[in-house]
Amino acid sequence: MTTTTISPASRQQPVLRSVATGERVFTLPLEHGPLAPATARHTARPVLESWGLDDEQVYDALLVISELVTNAVVYALPPVVLHLYAAADEAGQVQVYVSDGGPQPATAAAGWQPAAPRTSTDGARPSSPPSPATPAPTATPAD
């Protein structure tokens, strides 16, 4: 069963603004759920293109956005908000930030449970290489 938490911040609309100095800022509140990375990518693409990034730069930025939003959804609490920033003097350079509500307890993050240590008796390889075998004593024939 998949659940999606919608925080009050995620009901807000994206904010795109230009600061008086020519800086461009984009803010997008996201739902804390499995659709957040896709929503972030689909919403950010036209913004990045309007800021003059070429196809390769847009692709790279969308990859970073997807990774950061995914990490925030999987490992942190809501709200998740995407922030993009482009300075007026840096053509093609965009800073990508994702804010979230802080870390979840380690075992609560996406149902993750630490694996129990495996020993060599249950089929796993030993953690260190075996020591060289001691040669068996050689038998000498009896006279």
Rank of each mutant, 00 (worst) to 15 (best):
S66F: 00
R11H: 14
L16S: 09
L48Q: 02
D60L: 10
A86I: 02
G52A: 09
G52E: 05
I65W: 00
Q93M: 06
H42E: 15
T2Q: 15
R17G: 09
Y85L: 14
T5S: 10
G33H: 03
V19Q: 15
E56N: 13
L68E: 10
L53H: 02
T5N: 11
A44K: 05
A9T: 09
V94E: 00
H42P: 01
P8K: 08
Q95L: 11
A88Q: 12
F26Y: 15
T3E: 15
T27M: 07
D55I: 04
P78E: 05
W51P: 03
D89L: 12
V81D: 00
E67C: 01
Q12V: 04
L30H: 06
P14T: 02
A44D: 04
P8T: 07
A72E: 01
P79H: 04
A72T: 01
V96C: 00
A38H: 03
G22F: 08
L84P: 01
T43G: 07
P8S: 08
R45E: 14
P14Q: 04
T3I: 13
T21S: 15
G92H: 09
L77D: 09
L30P: 00
L35N: 12
L68Y: 08
V80C: 05
A40V: 03
S66Y: 00
P79K: 01
P8Y: 09
A36G: 08
Y59E: 12
P34C: 04
V25I: 15
Y85R: 14
D54H: 13
H83F: 06
P37Q: 06
P79Q: 07
R24N: 07
P46Q: 04
T39S: 07
L35I: 08
I6T: 12
V47N: 02
